[in-house]
Each structure stands twice: as C-alpha cells, then as structure tokens.
Amino acid sequence: MKQLEILGTRIDPASLQDCLETIKNTILLGQQLRIVTANPELIYKAEHDANLLAVINSAGLVVPDGVGVVWAARKLGLPVKERVTGIDLTAGILRESNRHGWRVFLLGAKPGITEKVIRQQSLRYPGIALACHHGFFTQAEEPEVIRQIRHFAPDILLVGLGAPKQEYWNHEHAGLAKVSMGIGGSFDVLSGEVKRAPGVFRESGLEWLYRLISEPGRIKRQVVLPLYLLRVLKQKYFPESDK
C-alpha cells in the first residue's frame, strides 16, 4: 500500500474495509498491530513534537481520520479511498468481533461509561467477550490496570484516553493485545452520553461543525485547523522551504 506524508505524519490510504481486513489477518496470524487514527489536530501537533511524530509513524497502521486529512491527501496528490474515523472503525471492529468471537477490552472514559458501552453492545453483539476499565486511573494504579488487561488476554484493546495520551500509552504498552487502537471519545458516543452528528453532517464532511456547535468548548482545540490548512498548502506549493 502506497503511503502519504502530511506534515511529516505517515498516512496509510486504507478504506474502512481495508482496515478491518488487516485487523482480521493480524489476529488470525497471531501477530500484533498498533493503529493510530490521525486527524488534523494530531497531525499538526506531531509536526511540532518529534517524540509524538515518531510514535505515530512507528504504528503499523495510520488511518485518515477526518475530512481534513482526506482533503490534504488529495491536495498533495494522493487521493485516499475515504476517511476512516475512529468511531466508524470501532463500530466495524465490534461487528467483526461478534462474527469471529474476538475478545475486546475497553480502556478509557469516565467511570461508568465503558460499563454502559458493554451493557449496550453485549445485547447487540452477544458473540463478543468484553471487559473494561475507566481511564481515570493514577500512575500508582496503572500496574493493576495492566494486570487486568493481561488476565483478560484481549484480541483487541480499544483505548480512549484522549490524544496524544492514548498514542503514547499504546506505544509504551505494546503486547497487551494483538491489536491496539486509540479511539478518542468514541466510548462517550457508543454509550449515548454524546450524540453523534446526524447523517447529513457526516456525509457532507461537516461532522466537525456539528461537534463544535454541540460542544462549544472544542473551539480551543479547533483553532489549529486554519493553521493546519496553511501548513498543508505550504507543503504543496513551497516544499523546499521546509527543508
């Protein structure tokens, strides 16, 4: 698969189905795969943080999470098949886990959220073995969290600690599952605590706008978007100036 680089971050132009096939093959072969869902905020941050950039680029799969990443890829000359959001990939993983009987551990969110996700998803997908722990654990409590994950022996570890903390965590704790992925706030959506954008917003690439309207506090995070846009245009039209 040909790779694309956006502001130094490697992007694999995989479709949602490509990702699910890669995950399935990884589990069937008993291998390991770390997945990063790269959105514009994470890419922009990584450009200014060499350690984060190295963590992202060392992952086995870095997917284009968001319309801004798809736009940048096409602007830079390598059209990607589609955007692969963390929530859509998580939903696909749960469907495939039900089909194949995979074991899935959920780590993250506030206390009670992942338990709610398990109750709901177990009704929908009775073929999945699920376990969880919230994301508000201290450094002193972390060894016990890791012990619980190892004891459960998950095929897939979904980590919702927020970016880039979840990317660092998965990188530092390789081997806890065959497949590990940072999923941001997806647990809040799956639990129903946060409502996902209506289809019309998602289909038009304006899910970010809906989330900004419904969560005004996100404005502090999204101020980087115009800066990201300018940096992508600079990479396209003035690539030598960055060298």
Rank of each mutant, 00 (worst) to 15 (best):
L52W: 04
G77F: 09
R221M: 11
A109L: 06
P13W: 11
V179N: 01
P64F: 08
T90N: 02
L53I: 06
A197W: 10
V104W: 01
R83G: 00
K2L: 05
I213E: 00
E240P: 01
Q3H: 13
L233Y: 15
W208F: 08
V224K: 06
G185Q: 05
E41M: 08
S97G: 15
L61C: 09
I56V: 13
V36Q: 01
P198R: 10
K236N: 09
S97P: 10
L190S: 04
Y210I: 01
E240G: 09
L33Q: 09
M1F: 10
K110Q: 12
L4I: 13
Q166F: 08
N25I: 10
S214L: 02
G135S: 09
R83F: 04
W208D: 11
S97M: 08
R34W: 07
M1V: 12
L190N: 00
W71L: 11
W169H: 04
L61M: 14
L4N: 05
L225P: 02
L206M: 15
A140M: 11
I35G: 06
I56A: 08
A174R: 14
Q121D: 01
V223K: 15
A59I: 06
Q222C: 03
R221P: 06
A197N: 12
L53G: 08
L52C: 03
V104K: 00
A131D: 15
P226I: 12
S204L: 15
K243V: 10
Q148E: 14
N170T: 14
H171A: 15
C19M: 08
G30P: 07
L33E: 11
V62N: 02
A174Q: 15
R211N: 07
A73M: 11
T26P: 02
R95C: 06
E5R: 13
A38S: 14
S15M: 02
K220P: 01
C19L: 06
A72R: 07
P79M: 08
E240N: 12
E115M: 01
S241Y: 10
S97D: 04
I23P: 00
L233N: 12
A14S: 14
L190R: 00
F105H: 01
R95P: 01
Q222W: 06
I219M: 13
E193Y: 07
